[in-house]
Amino acid sequence: MLLIPCPWCGPREDDEFTFGGEADIPRPADPDALTDEQWADYLFMRDNRRGRHREQWCHTAGCRRWFIVERDTVTNEILGASTYGNSS
């Protein structure tokens, strides 16, 4: 069980949330300019980091807002949460 700090609702149990994978992988501005390899890298390749990891979570059964959580993948300690752009 993780206690996830939703920036809007406060800490809640993880079964209210949906995991959205690694954060900071924006959709390329001009996909047509990418090679197939670069496009495949965007689509499929993730870092699977050991330690501090920035990842996306959505408070699906709450406010339905997406936000970014920084979590230690070894200890599962949650180091912080932040919001996207002008979504706050």
Binding site: G20, P26, R27, Q56, C58, W66, Y84, G85, S87
Partner: peptide, 9 residues
Amino acid sequence: EQWLQTEWT
């Protein structure tokens, strides 16, 4: 929702 909130804010 995910696109609107995370990419196309």
